[in-house]
Amino acid sequence: MKVTLNVNGASHWLDLDTRVTLLDALRDHLKLTGTKKGCDHGQCGACTVIAGGRRINSCLSLAALHDGDEITTVEGLSDDELSDLQSAFVAHDGMQCGYCTPGQICSALGMLGELSEGWPSHVSETLDGPVRPTREEIAERMSGNLCRCSCYPGINAAILETAEGS
C-alpha cells in the first residue's frame, strides 16, 4: 500500500505491507531508529512519537493509517544543538540505559502541550481549574512511559525545569 509519511519535515513515499506499524516504518524502513520498540503493545511508551500534534504509541498504529500525517520523532527535536528538554535530561541524569529515553522525551513534549491546553489529569483537584506543571501532575501524565532503570526522579526534574523555563 502506498503511504506518504511526513517525518520531521521531510516527506517519504513508501510502499508498505498494510501490516507495517508506524513504529516499524520509522525504524526499519526510514532507518529512524531513535524511536524504540519496548513492548510493541502500547504498554511501555518507548515508541512514543508526536503524530498530528499529539503524542501516541507508534507501535499500536498502522503506518497506512498515517498517510499524509506529520510525524515528529526524537531525531526531529534537535540538529547540532540539543533542545532545552534534551539538555535537561542530560543534566538531571534522566536516563541510564537510554532505551526508554526518546519515548520519554517525545511524551514529555506532547504532555507539556496538553498541559498548556489546560487538559486536566487524574490527579487534578478540579476539572475546571487551571493546571500547572507540578511534580504530581507530571508524574501522573508521564506514567505511560515505563523506565526500568527507574530514572523517574531525573525525568521529572528535567521536565519541571523545562516547563518552568518556557
Binding site: K31, T33, K36, V74, E75, L77, L82, V90, D93, P102
Partner: peptide, 21 residues
Amino acid sequence: AARPDGPLKVSGRAAYAAEYL
C-alpha cells in the same frame, strides 16, 4: 559528571542491538 553518552541517548543516536540492520 554528566554521562558522555547522554547526548547520543537523548537524541536517539545511540544504537542498540536490533538497530544494526
